[in-house]
């Protein structure tokens, strides 16, 4: 995605002497806010927000750090929601096993879809992932285990490790928060690993990465599977939070939503997709009661983002004077 996008401002700004500790304090404050948030906000809303934030972060792993725009991530999110819901409800699996199945299922899907899609680049890649996920949508529409239009209803949340009762909303919230933080840690570790560095080099200049001897398609496929698995983690969580899995989760609109979250928040920043998911989910919540269709707003926000601030909210902040003074850096 980078390469031809805006140049990074090169004028230097003196980094604030305590930039490191300020950032640490900010991070801890956010963490603390997440811990006490359910005292003030509706927990289901918060859990939805966390699940989508994880989904968008997983998507960003691919778009932001590898430069691949997938238009088919709904297949992994919604597919995993189905797998988890089915395992927990029909087979009586424990929630952690159900989510694990969702993650593995999404990873397997990602392996197949990725292997086909990485045969083309750029814009074709986007169209191919979209077409393949639509194929999966039709599969879900017809397969008996998804119960077609009805979806899988009243999925039991069960007991975590047979001990913690997840039907208790607070227990469930902290479980979701825990999974979210683990997912984020995995992404952070992955992005900053040698593997992640090679991905960035592919994003910046694929030809050069090839000439340096890297098997580019293998790395791309690795990133794709990783992103699919994490999107599956979010999807499995979603199935337990709302206790259902439906066709909405695998529809192409869902793929569009996750792109919007990432774009709005900031492509290629760790924080961006989380902020974007928060805004989009809040907007949906706010408009849910009115009869004004969300898609009009979604569409307009898309257009404005692409035309006016392609770095996204977090990216713009990082690139601003204050952001750079605090030592932030949009990863582009």
């Amino acid at each position: 995605m980078a390469g031809k996008s805006e140049p990074i401002p090169t004028d230097t700004v003196a980094v604030h002497p305590q930039a490191r500790s300020i950032r640490l304090v900010l991070g801890l404050a956010m963490l603390a806010a997440l811990f006490i948030a359910p005292q003030f906000l509706y927990p289901i809303f918060l859990m939805k927000l966390l699940a989508f934030a994880l989904f968008a972060s997983a998507f960003n792993l691919l778009l932001g750090y590898t430069g691949l725009l997938s238009f088919g991530h709904a297949a992994f999110f919604g597919g995993a929601a189905y797998f988890t819901a089915h395992a927990v409800k029909e087979w009586g699996w424990s929630p952690e096993a159900g989510i694990l199945l969702g993650v593995l299922g999404a990873a397997a899907l990602g392996l197949v879809m990725g292997a086909i899609a990485i045969r083309r680049q750029g814009i074709y890649f986007a169209m191919i992932t979209l077409a393949l996920s639509q194929m999966f949508f039709f599969f879900c529409l017809q397969a008996p285990f998804t119960h077609g239009e009805d979806g899988i209803q009243s999925v039991p949340r069960g007991h975590l490790f047979g001990l913690v009762d997840l039907n208790d909303t607070m227990n469930m919230y902290y479980f979701v928060l825990g999974v979210f933080l683990i997912g984020l840690l995995v992404i952070w570790r992955f992005v900053n690993s040698p593997f992640g560095m090679i991905l960035k080099s592919i994003r910046e200049n694929e030809q050069r990465a090839i000439s340096l001897g890297y098997s580019v398609s293998r790395y791309k496929l690795g990133a794709f599977v990783m992103s699919a698995a994490l999107a599956g983690l979010a999807g499995g969580l979603k199935a337990l939070i709302f206790q259902f899995a439906t066709l909405t989760d695998v529809a192409w609109q869902m793929s569009g939503e996750v792109i919007l979250m990432t774009l709005l928040g900031g492509i290629g920043t760790l924080l961006g997709p989380i902020v974007g998911a928060g805004l989009v989910v809040s907007l949906q919540n706010y408009l849910a009661t009115s009869d004004f269709p969300v898609t009009i707003i979604t569409g307009l926000v898309f257009m404005v983002c692409v035309l006016l601030f392609r770095r996204g909210l977090v990216g713009e902040f990082f690139a601003s004077g204050l952001g750079r003074k605090l030592g932030f850096r949009a990863d582009k």
């Binding site: 792109i259 307009l300 926000v301």
Partner: peptide, 16 residues
């Protein structure tokens, strides 16, 4: 810009 932005823009246009 990168052609992907054209795709994203027209996607938003379609939704709107």
């Amino acid at each position: 810009l990168d052609p992907l932005y054209g795709l994203l823009f027209t996607f938003g246009l379609a939704l709107a």
